[in-house]
Amino acid sequence: MKIVTDQNVREFLNNSLTRDSILNLYQPALLSSLIDYQNNPEIVPPRTVRSTTTKNSDLTHLFMPCVAPEATGVKFISGGPSNSKKGLGFQGFIATVDKFDGTLAGVVNAKTVTPFRTALASSIGLVKAIDPLNVPEAMTSDLTVFGVGPQAYWHVKLTLILFPNITSITVVNRSYEKAQQFAEELKKDFGVTVNAYSYQDAAHMETVNQKLSESSVVFGCLPSTSPAIEFSALNKDPKVPVFVSLIGSYKPTMRELDLSALKASGKKLVVDTAEGVAEEAGEVADAGFARSQMVELAQLSNTNRQVFTTAENIVVQKIVGMSIMDLVVAKMLIGSTGTTFDGF
């Protein structure tokens, strides 16, 4: 039985992630699990959400099981307002069992796995929209990310590995101070040009929208209740590829981008799970997307690009996440890093 700490996870990923490993190891493993889910959605049972019964605690607990052919186990995470104030966010683990005898195979700290697997899912749509092995000449060298947490960090990290031609990043957040701090972190880790702005500062928004119009890659990692990203500001030159991935809104009351223009275009929204997106994403419900107007990541390899690409060469994706994504990444980590304990 393996115990994989968050430090184990970060060190292993930092040492193993390359363009080749993302494209030929991590993405295929995650995509295979999503195909399994598409073929049999029952392998991901509904998650259970319960508020704590402990006095003076404000935690919410989430239990997310998975009984996939290649990854069986559960993800358990807890979070709440007090955790957020302490900068802890959600805490938890992923436990996997042997698929034949049910013995515990390993336990993995979920802190980094969660943002990594989400960024990995985003990257599947990204490389379908813009080929990193044959980068279009018109692709810009700019990326804009809304949000400053681990999700934002791992989305930027994977994108820079896949597209070293990106040299300028724009960070947008509600808090300007946190945007500046995150910008400094990105400069230190990746050596690129980074500028920070607040979407709540009217004086900043003209520049933010200008940066959006110059970006070929845009990530929404904000748990916002009103759209902070303006669709009208995206580059409309059909020669310039634009990819937008939204992962921040995870409740029907949340929304990052008004999707009505995409709906009006008649093009499909790329999603990880149509069922999950329909239930959890506020902006999707607002725009009135039916499930038939979404294309899942598992279907992308067999779907003509024009089905989900607007006339302006814009692709929009929405990711909400599933336990199977955590389990498949956890299984890979258990097989590669951590500490073995005998006689559990």
Rank of each mutant, 00 (worst) to 15 (best):
T114C: 01
D101F: 03
S141Y: 06
L158A: 05
G106N: 09
G80T: 12
W154V: 05
V113I: 11
L126S: 11
G80I: 07
V127I: 15
L143C: 02
P69I: 07
V67M: 03
L120S: 08
N134V: 04
K85P: 00
N83D: 10
V171I: 14
G87T: 09
V135F: 06
S84D: 10
A95L: 15
S168K: 15
A129R: 08
I94F: 04
K85Q: 12
A138F: 05
T144A: 14
T159Y: 07
G149N: 10
P115V: 02
I124R: 00
D101P: 04
C66E: 09
V171G: 04
L162K: 10
A71L: 01
P81L: 06
V135W: 04
A152W: 10
K111F: 03
L162I: 08
P115Q: 08
P164E: 11
T96A: 14
T114D: 08
L162Y: 02
G92R: 03
S123R: 05
V156L: 11
V172K: 08
T144I: 15
N173M: 10
K99S: 07
D98I: 03
N134R: 13
S82W: 00
G87N: 05
V113R: 08
S78N: 15
V148Q: 11
V171N: 12
P132T: 06
V172A: 15
P115D: 07
P81A: 14
A105T: 09
N109L: 00
F76I: 15
N165M: 04
R174D: 01
R174W: 04
S84H: 14
T118H: 08
D142W: 13
T167I: 13
T103H: 06
G92F: 02
N83E: 05
A129L: 01
K75E: 03
T103N: 13
F116T: 00
P136H: 08
I77F: 01
T159D: 08
K75A: 03
G106A: 05
K111A: 11
V135Q: 02
L120G: 09
K157D: 09
T114H: 01
V108T: 11
L120R: 04
G106M: 02
R117C: 04
I130E: 07
A68T: 06
F100S: 13
K128F: 10
F116H: 01
I161F: 02
S168N: 15
P81Y: 09
Q151G: 04
K157N: 12
A121M: 03
G80N: 11
I166G: 02
V107D: 02
V127T: 15
G125C: 00
G73D: 12
F146T: 06
K99D: 13
Q91T: 15
V171R: 03
S78D: 07
G89Q: 05
L158W: 00
A71E: 10
A110P: 06
K86W: 03
L104K: 07
G147L: 05
L162W: 04
T114F: 05
L104Y: 03
N109T: 03
V127C: 08
W154C: 05
